[in-house]
Design a protein around this nucleic acid. Structure first.
Length: 1011
RNA sequence: GCUCGAGUGGUGGAAUUGGUAGACACGUUGGACUUAAAAUCCAAUGGGUAGUAAUGCCCGUACGGGUUCAAGUCCCGUCUCGAGUACCA
């Protein structure tokens, strides 16, 4: 093979690797282990684009490098295959999500006849060294069986704050039997019922179960959700606009629903401190820290008649500055404390607040609103009467939903006090900061200002006062030190079909776990993937969805035996399966348990995790939570799943926006018949147009107005009925970039007819004959996230066809630093392809493969060894982009040196093998090796080849480099100085000037300070 | 608003602890080969300026200051962009 034939080489070695299971990892080895993991993908029908493999290529380079370096490497891949898109597709087409998921992974044809390449096929073409024998799919019953098992483990655990770990619920039961709630310090809601051992033992079984439910790490709770009766489902906050559903405009109500919850809050402190030991980007750690939101302060009780209002404050030292109190409008005491005189005002305010969604309330931060309840609480220390207000700046969901307002120390309290100044129930602001004029400096960092007007706290500093105030409050039983976390317990129920079913049935309304040995509880068949008419989740449609406790299997709902109970209708959320998959890979085919103890102890945890930073508060937090649970229960030996993590940046696509289109149609013969309208797609461009448009008399339609349906389009009524256009959104107008010229125009004649209207994929047009009259379309270019809906994706398959996988791999790395977002520009790929050809040529002469057995020149050895050093350092610091540069430099230099020596070319093949494995394997085999290159030892760097007798010194004057001089390395500083001063050029520069100082840094620089 | 990150040629980006700014590519220009194109190879390429030229000088890492013999790199201030977060008491 004379010329570099990437297609033949890559096909050959991909086949070889698959047939020989070259990358199969063993769970026993004398070698040290290395576990490199990628965040597994959701297999969408759109397939991979060039942005997806970026992280996989990086982890593959590290994996292959580690194999060369003598490690036993685990590098697995799988699919996070439960999820919404498959379900929505199922709702539209009736096709089972399991089928579409399988097609999306393995390839095939979808229901509309589109060819799906399949994630697996696409990945195989890039030459990853995955051990496919360990593949996992979260939607496979063999896998979710164990996700269900972990759910049961959570149900059967409680959090013991004293031991600071999760414990079996049986331990709690025995402690209840022995001493009731005495000495139980569990992570639960506040103010749970207390009881003695005698009382516990007298409770009925049902009562005991209900109590235990409050302690379990997964529990049922009534939480407020956004319920949309029109759609029969719960909506997330971002699916609601102006109080109605985004889709369809149905009203949304806030409703309390019984949902499964995860007590992640119990692990808040460990999730926070655990971050310190992780080798993650500081920004991700910071996001998690903010999310967990630890604040240290105190709980303080204010007495109000027979009621008690608890508040959380981070500044108990400012307690004498309390001027009023504010409760969230939803606070449970509001109705009970409001005076008759204020009742109407309070009711009206509550109503007004309830009508606003959480989102609106958050968006509207500036408007101050609130109402006085008429009630006064008693200050626990001063005994003064403190007016109680309600206001929506206080959130029901944080702390206790009530605050003690200290206007002189808090911006919001100050604004509130100022706004209602002079009204009934709003006294003058109390100032407790010595020497601070409230009217001039309302709030700010007063940590260091000594306190005044504060009784026993007077004169004290911040820290001292904090401590003293808490002590005093504890003494009189009106408060205690308390740490609060922003981290909320996670809702774990989804009213969806395509997710893990819960291994739960209900007996007398109480949840019962199904024994592990009967798992998996497989997803039932349903006639439609929609909620039922009465609002139950899709599983409510299943007719065989009851549990028989005698046969221990799922039976028909018609079975009316006493031993048959209804099964849970919700499914688990997307993050369930991804929270523990890293352990399943260790022992992926184990049919008896989720993974063996030996496998986990061997692989421990992930040494290198690569994925996007968008999972900072989701997946990465939840999986840390589950791993801590598994650790507490003795299931795994580690506390953290991912020791080191690198977040790859997004690859951005270049979109071309069309400014306008002339729409007409053709007759049967395909000839242009009539121009019917002009669609202005770019609204800012539209502004530059003359009012009458390009062609007088033609209707113009701004595409910004065309949304969703034909009907709404027709309302614009400027298009004849036989042309139907549906533009889902603005993005539909994007042109494929490769057809757009640099001058931002598209020459329609350049585009093959079949491709010509690819960019109107969401537009359906009459008789297949929508056309543009213009020969050129004006376009605008922008760089943005690569996505199918934006029509700016670049498919890696096409790159592999044209340039090969090795070129794709190198080019993706060459684009820039891994962690940085960068635009994809296909133009630059020719440089890397050219390099591949040069590399190939280095091992060939005109006759074919040619490598000499002669010794290499010192220059070539120097080139080789500086490359070894550079590549090794780069891989270890994840600077893959500069490695590619150094390969280019090496090949350029070796070509120049006409090096054909095996002594250099053999190690060079190994060096490049992690990056471009196919060509490396081919060269390796041409070099006469029978074994795969994958475990060939990495070349050892030897300094001696780099040692030189002279160094080119930059000679500078007053810090400015003027010229360079070659000077010997092994001479003293003084000698060096003499040699430099003896030089003519130096003397020339120094003429008429005086040397004030000479700086010589051996090996670096010579600098003269002259004047 | 707060937190974090980033601003370097026409473009993507190099510059390990302060020590020759612009490596390596893309693009552009000129040239060789060719009937021509593609491919390949060679040369030039931060801006300005003087000179026929060799060569020289000046300015240059968002902006304004500072530390230093020496600053893309360190410090202070400003601006712009990006990400996260948002009444968290």
């Amino acid at each position: 093979m004379l010329l570099y034939d990437h297609k033949a080489i890559e096909a050959k070695w991909q086949k070889h690797w698959a047939e020989n299971k070259t990358f199969k990892a063993s769970n026993t080895s004398d070698k040290p282990k290395f576990y490199a993991l990628d965040m597994f993908p959701y297999p969408s029908g759109a397939g991979l684009h060039v942005g997806h493999p970026l992280g996989y290529i990086a982890s593959d380079i590290v994996s292959r490098y580690k194999r060369h370096a003598g490690f036993n490497v685990l590098h697995p891949m799988g699919y996070d295959s439960f999820g919404l898109p498959a379900e929505q597709y199922a709702i539209q087409t009736g096709q089972h999500p399991a089928e579409t998921t399988k097609t999306n992974i393995e390839g095939g044809t979808d229901k509309s006849g589109n060819k799906i390449a399949g994630y697996r096929n696409q990945m195989d073409r890039i030459g990853f060294s995955f051990d496919w024998d360990r593949e996992v799919r979260t939607s496979s019953p063999d896998y979710y069986k164990y996700t269900q098992e972990i759910f049961i483990m959570l149900f059967n655990s409680w959090y013991d704050n004293d031991a600071d770990k999760a414990q079996p619920i049986s331990l709690l039961e025995s402690r209840f039997r022995e001493s009731g709630t005495n000495n139980i310090n569990a992570a639960t809601e506040e103010d749970l019922r207390q009881f003695t051992a005698a009382e516990w033992n007298a409770f009925t079984d049902k009562e005991q179960q209900e109590i235990l439910l409050d302690y379990r790490l997964t529990f049922l709770a009534n939480t407020e959700v956004n319920w949309c009766p029109g759609l029969g489902t719960v909506l997330a906050n971002d699916e609601i606009v102006n109080g109605v559903s985004e889709r369809g405009g149905h009203p949304v109500v806030r409703k309390k629903m019984r949902q499964w919850m995860m007590r992640i809050s119990a692990f808040a402190e460990r999730l926070l401190t655990g971050l310190d030991g992780l080798d993650w980007a500081e920004s991700i750690k910071e996001i998690q820290r903010n999310w967990i939101g630890k604040s240290v302060g105190a709980m303080v009780s204010f007495q109000l008649g027979e009621h008690k209002i608890d508040v959380f404050t981070t500044r108990p030292d400012t307690i004498y500055g309390v001027t009023f109190m504010t409760l969230a409008p939803e606070h449970e005491l509001v109705d009970q404390i409001t005076t008759a005189a204020q009742k109407d005002a309070v009711e009206a305010y509550k109503k007004a607040t309830a009508a606003r969604s959480e989102r609106e309330r958050m968006a509207d931060v500036k408007t101050i609103s609130g109402v006085f309840t008429g009630a006064y609480a008693t200050h626990p220390l001063s005994g003064e009467q403190v007016p109680v207000w309600i206001g929506d700046y206080v959130l029901a969901g944080y702390g206790t939903g009530a605050v003690m307002a200290v206007p002189c120390g808090d911006e919001r309290d100050y604004a509130f006090a100022n706004y209602f100044a002079g009204q009934e129930g709003m006294p003058a602001i109390k100032n407790i900061f010595d020497g601070v004029d409230i009217s001039e400096e309302a709030y700010g960092a007063k940590d260091k200002t000594p306190l005044c007007n504060s009784d026993f706290l007077n004169g004290m500093s911040y820290k001292q006062a904090m401590y003293t105030a808490i002590q005093k409050l504890e003494e009189i039983g009106s408060g205690k030190g308390k740490t609060n976390y922003r981290l909320r317990d996670a809702v774990f129920s989804r009213q969806r079909y395509w997710g893990e079913p819960f291994p739960v049935y209900y007996k007398d309304g109480l949840p019962q776990m199904i024994d592990n040995k009967y798992l998996p509880i497989a997803l039932p068949e349903v006639d439609e993937y929609l909620p039922t008419e009465d609002g139950a989740p899709p599983l409510g449609r299943a007719t065989t969805w009851s549990w028989c406790t005698q046969e221990n299997k799922v039976v028909s709902n018609d079975d009316d035996r006493d031993c048959v109970y209804p099964l849970e209708l919700n499914t688990m959320p997307g993050w369930a399966g991804s929270s523990w998959y890293m352990f399943r890979y260790m022992d992926a085919t184990n049919e008896n348990e989720m993974f063996s103890k030996e496998a986990q102890e061997y692989w421990n945890n992930v040494d290198l995790y690569i994925g996007g930073s968008e999972h900072a508060t989701g997946h990465l937090l939840y999986s840390r939570f589950w791993v801590k649970l598994l650790h507490d229960l003795g299931k795994v030996t580690v506390e953290e799943p991912f020791q080191k993590m690198i977040n790859q940046g997004m690859i951005l696509g270049e979109s071309a926006f069309v400014n306008y289109l002339d729409i007409g149609y053709k007759n049967q013969e395909g000839q242009f018949k009539q121009l019917v309208c002009q669609i202005i797609i770019n609204s800012s461009y539209a502004k530059t147009l003359p009012e009458e448009g390009f062609i007088t008399g033609l209707p113009q339609i701004l595409i910004d107005h065309i949304i969703e349906t034909t009907d709404s389009y027709r309302k614009f009524n400027k298009v004849p009925d036989d042309i139907i256009l549906i533009f889902k959104n603005f993005r539909s107008s994007h042109l494929p970039v490769e057809y757009v010229n640099l001058d931002n125009t598209v020459n329609l004649s350049d585009i093959p007819v079949s491709e010509r209207f690819r960019w109107t994929q969401n537009a359906y047009y009459f008789n297949d004959n929508t056309l543009t009259r213009s020969d050129k379309i004006d376009t605008l270019r922008e760089v943005e996230k690569m996505s199918k809906s934006k029509f700016n994706v670049v498919n890696p398959d096409n790159i592999c066809d044209q340039y090969g996988a090795d070129t794709l791999r190198l080019y993706e790395m060459f684009l820039g630093p891994l962690e940085q977002a960068k635009p994809w520009n296909t133009a630059g790929i020719t440089g890397v392809y050219g390099f591949m050809k040069k590399l190939w040529k280095l091992y060939h002469n005109d006759a074919g493969f040619s490598v000499s057995e002669e010794k290499a020149s010192p220059d070539s050895m120097k080139t080789l060894h500086k490359t070894i050093k550079k590549v090794q350092d780069d891989i270890e610091s994840f600077s893959f982009n500069t490695s590619v540069s150094s390969f280019m430099i090496a090949v350029n230099e070796l070509t120049q040196q006409k090096c054909s020596s095996r002594e250099v070319l053999e190690p060079l093949a190994v060096l490049i093998s992690p990056y471009a494995p196919h060509i490396a394997e081919e060269l390796w085999s041409l070099l006469g090796h029978k074994e795969s290159i994958s475990e060939a030892p990495f070349p050892v760097f030897d300094e001696k080849h780099l040692v030189e007798s002279s160094k080119t010194y930059p000679i500078s004057f007053n810090g400015k480099m003027k010229f360079t001089l070659d000077l010997p390395v092994d001479v003293s500083k003084d000698e060096l100085e003499k040699m430099v001063l003896a030089n003519e050029k130096v003397q020339e520069q120094l003429e008429g000037k005086q040397i004030r100082k000479t700086i010589i840094v051996p090996g670096k620089i010579v600098n003269f300070v002259v004047g």
